[in-house]
């Protein structure tokens, strides 16, 4: 199961690495003044949020083969991380958007008066406040991600839960599931603790 745990961690960290920045790009596209761009993005987000992640995993893994004859990847980590990153980016995008739109208009006006460019305003004034504000929602998603990694078993990726199932099978016992449950819980306890620390470190105005 230890080997499986490392694969679970690989999904987790790689997904965060790609989906957090990707989410920001999607959020900016979603808020674009160009009607076409924003409505296309909106549609994509609604598809990603409106269909099961399990289905998206299957589509990303086997879809290219059925549609274009591109062979199924031997290293399942690639399609798994792609599917997870795209899916989580959609959720993160909406969280970012909520954060950015909650900023008072006055701040943009004040920044403009002080001679900040649009990019400067966004990076130096808006973004730091947004990150602070959305931290609890991000934590929520990250905790869900830890548990969602177990979905990778549908595309035969040998992560912790798949291996737990194999052991449970060969021993006709439930213990591996209990062990897996404890692993997920401890993993999330660590995530919770880490995110709590980050949140606290950002409360510099209080």
């Amino acid at each position: 199961m230890a080997e499986g745990l490392s694969k679970t961690c690989a999904i987790f960290f790689l997904t965060l690495l790609f989906s957090l920045p990707l989410g920001m790009i999607v959020a900016l596209l979603r808020m674009s003044k160009d009607k076409v761009v924003s409505s296309v993005t909106r549609f994509v987000i609604s598809v990603l949020r409106g269909t099961p992640l399990m289905l998206q995993l299957l589509a990303v893994t086997y879809g290219p083969y059925y549609l274009f004859g591109i062979s199924v990847s031997r290293n399942k980590l690639i399609p798994v991380v792609i599917a997870f990153s795209i899916n989580y980016a959609a959720y993160f995008a909406e969280i970012y958007r909520g954060g950015i739109e909650s900023m008072a208009k006055g701040q943009y006006e004040a920044a403009a008066v002080l001679g900040y460019t649009k990019t400067q305003t966004f990076l130096k004034i808006i973004l730091p406040q947004v990150i602070k504000r959305i931290m609890p929602s991000i934590t929520n998603e990250v905790v869900t991600l830890v548990k969602d990694t177990s979905l990778a078993f549908t595309v035969s990726y040998q992560e912790m839960f798949t291996i737990g199932k194999q052991i449970a099978n060969s021993q006709t016992s439930f213990t591996p599931f209990v062990v897996a449950g404890v692993f997920y819980f401890v993993f999330n306890a660590i995530v919770d603790f880490g995110m709590g620390k980050i949140e606290k470190s950002m409360q510099y105005y209080k």
């Binding site: 086997y62 083969y65 062979s71 199924v72 990847s73 031997r74 399942k76 035969s156």
Partner: peptide, 12 residues
């Protein structure tokens, strides 16, 4: 069926 898909798709 998933095993066979993997075979068909060249993953195994």
């Amino acid at each position: 069926l998933k095993c066979f898909t993997e075979l068909d798709g060249g993953a195994v």
